[in-house]
């Protein structure tokens, strides 16, 4: 599959939005892959975190949307503390999540969570999860 890269994709509103919300410069990433190498959740991800930031650099919003990566991220910040270039990838992930969440799209359907689960889980898990995964 060929992708289209142009001035429009590189400097698109999407790229600007990601950079504004995350307060990160995407192009600082030089694709060493250390974030992916240390990501605790990437065994469950379609695309590696380093691939997500590469797609974001190129402005390929749809490819990011198709991947589950940003919703599997547990915001543990391991990527950010180890990034040699000081890119706070956890914040980039959050920005990408928010771009979807702010369209009122939820990743967790709260009414569908079984009562036993709610009884079992500590508040910190539920509030944390809802904040990261719902609008």
């Amino acid at each position: 599959m060929r992708i289209e890269i142009s001035t429009e994709t590189l400097y698109s509103d999407f790229v600007k939005k990601v950079e504004a919300i995350s307060e990160q410069t995407l192009i600082s990433c030089y694709q060493c892959g250390k974030c992916s190498a240390g990501c605790p959740m990437c065994f469950a991800m379609d695309l590696l975190p380093s691939q997500i930031i590469r797609l974001a650099q190129l402005g390929l919003e749809d490819d990011i949307a198709k991947a589950n990566t940003i919703w599997i991220c547990a915001s543990c910040i391991t990527c950010s503390v180890r990034c040699p270039k000081g890119v706070d990838l956890a914040r980039v992930m959050e920005a990408l999540r928010l771009i979807t969440s702010r369209k009122n799209i939820d990743q967790v359907q709260i009414p569908e969570i079984p009562k036993e689960t709610i009884a079992q889980l500590p508040q910190v898990a539920m509030v944390g999860g809802f904040r990261k995964l719902t609008a």
Partner: peptide, 20 residues
């Protein structure tokens, strides 16, 4: 000792948390 347990993913992906 400093590895993430999967955190709040317990509400949406409990299987992944188990693996962690």
């Amino acid at each position: 000792a400093t590895e993430c347990c999967g955190s709040y993913q317990i509400i949406s992906n409990p299987d992944y948390v188990s693996q962690r």
